[in-house]
């Protein structure tokens, strides 16, 4: 299968300054092996887009602890104390985005939309610097699309074509991110021969690479 990628080949795709989306919710559904390879690669100045800051030893938190992240775009950072420390020291920029808006921004990036209009964040500091539009008498914030150089997908059950479905709550942001990145790399949670077409969540043309088994 052409889509299988070795650790070495994956490392060749990694560049300083990349923007990378990482699936997972508090590391549930995050591709831990792919993250470990990035730590090992020592690439730096990354912009990471993830639901949260993970934990210091799990999920995207490992990239933050290893000081490879220049900017984090997330909805929640409370579970990884290093995020707060680096933010206060000015070592890492953090952009906090309401979770639903983060999901929609990623969807917009993957769906060719110029952004989305949401009531979330109106009359809060989230609206600062953003365009407000009134539609049918209601005020909405224009949240612009997010797109990345690479998406790292976890929690996926992968078939021989590269079709994906997801296991339990590891689905979260993964299918959205698989739509919104130049290169999509999947770390399989499990493999199965062929996923019934009725149950494919991420169709294989969206998937560029599947990490080989250990």
């Amino acid at each position: 299968m052409k889509k299988i990628i070795t650790k070495e080949h994956f490392m060749e795709l990694l560049k300083d300054g990349m923007t990378i989306m990482v699936g997972g919710f508090l590391a549930n559904g995050s591709p831990e092996r792919l993250i470990d390879i990035i730590v090992e690669s020592e690439i730096k100045d990354l912009t990471i887009i993830c639901n949260d800051g993970g934990f210091e030893d799990r999920g995207v938190g490992k990239l933050i602890v290893s000081r490879q992240v220049r900017k984090l775009i997330a909805s929640h950072i409370g579970t990884n104390p290093t995020v707060g420390t680096l933010m206060q020291e000015g070592e890492m920029e953090v952009e906090l985005v309401p979770q639903g808006s983060l999901a929609e921004k990623i969807r917009a990036g993957g769906a060719g939309l110029g952004g989305i209009l949401t009531p979330t964040g109106i009359e809060t500091i989230v609206e600062e610097g953003k365009t407000i539009l009134e539609v049918q008498g209601v005020k909405y914030l224009l949240e612009e699309p997010l797109y990345a150089d690479m998406a790292l997908i976890g929690g996926a059950i992968v078939d021989k074509y590269g079709n994906l479905r997801y296991h339990q709550t590891m689905r979260n942001f993964n299918p959205l991110m698989a739509m919104a990145s130049e290169i999509v790399v999947v770390e399989p949670f499990r493999r199965e021969a062929v996923i019934d077409p009725e149950y494919v969540v991420t169709p294989h043309p969206l998937v560029d690479y599947v990490l080989e088994d250990e």
Binding site: L26, N28, G100, H167, Q168, F173, F189
Partner: peptide, 29 residues
């Protein structure tokens, strides 16, 4: 691998479903 929004291991009741973050927040908003 089923966790709640606090990251704690949890269960699902009969008739329940798993959804992605997009559908989850579409339901919410």
């Amino acid at each position: 691998w089923l966790v709640n929004a606090g990251g704690n291991k949890a269960t699902i009741v009969p008739g329940g479903s798993y959804i992605d973050s997009l559908l989850s927040f579409s339901l919410i908003r």
